[in-house]
């Protein structure tokens, strides 16, 4: 069962074309990683899926429904959530208020305030602090929780590990086992290829806006990834 399908998607970042005819699919409950260098078009692709950046050509289909060109809030309520690059918490709201924003327009589902506090118990202690004052790792937990509280079917995670200490990255990825138990599908955009391969079922590699490699994470060899990542011919 596929949940999300991209068909020949072109997205532009301002006047520059960021992706060229990208085909991609995510199964129900599947975790898909997208890797690639800076500027490969990964973040732009995520923005296009949730409707923050318009899709110029091609189709985006969510569970059989064409969501191409739909407004972002409608796509969100159809069950897509985004953990954005750089966390982007509402800095003048408290942690709990940030979480409440996630819950306010939520679909029915397993994630409640109590459930996310259980997932990240450290958040409970800082719930009345302003989100802007938290450490990077704490902010990432809040950002993930805020997205989870919408009870998405598809969770888009953009560079979760960016700027975080390795132990914190491990803690956060450990929680994804719990998150995946609820049946949510994942798209993880990562620059850390090793991490991406470890936590995903399948993997896409983007180079200059084009898919250069696709396959089951456990079967792809690191040197193939390297070749696809840098665009070198297998020499």
């Amino acid at each position: 069962m596929t949940l999300l399908t991209l068909e020949k998607v072109d997205v532009f970042y301002r006047d520059l074309q960021a992706t060229f005819g990208v085909d991609l699919s995510v199964g129900q409950g599947e975790a898909v990683a997208i890797i690639g260098a800076n500027g490969a078009g990964k973040s732009t692709l995520l923005r296009a899926i949730i409707g923050l950046t318009p899709v110029r050509n091609g189709r985006v289909v969510l569970d059989g429904r064409d969501i191409t060109g739909l407004r972002c809030d409608k796509i969100a309520r159809a069950g897509v959530a985004l953990v954005p690059e750089g966390r982007r918490l509402f800095g003048s709201l408290t942690v709990e208020e940030n979480l409440l924003m996630g819950a306010a327009r939520a679909r029915p589902g397993p994630w409640t305030l109590a459930a996310v506090y259980e997932l990240f118990p450290a958040m409970r202690e800082v719930r009345y602090s302003l989100a802007g004052n938290l450490s990077g790792g704490q902010q990432q937990m809040v950002s993930i929780s805020r997205a989870l509280l919408t009870n998405p079917r598809l969770l888009l995670c953009d560079e979760l590990s960016l700027g975080l200490a390795p132990t914190i990255i491990n803690d956060i990825y450990t929680c994804f086992t719990r998150i995946r138990e609820t049946g949510v599908s994942l798209i993880l955009v990562e620059q850390d290829t090793v991490k991406a391969r470890d936590v995903s079922d399948r993997l896409y590699c983007l180079l200059k806006g084009q898919v250069t490699l696709e396959g089951a994470s456990s079967e792809i060899r690191m040197d193939a990834i390297k070749a696809a990542y840098f665009g070198e011919t297998a020499a």
Binding site: C72, A76, M101, A147
Partner: peptide, 9 residues
């Protein structure tokens, strides 16, 4: 933008 991704119009 983030507010929109949380389902707000």
């Amino acid at each position: 933008e983030i507010l929109e991704t949380l389902g707000f119009d």
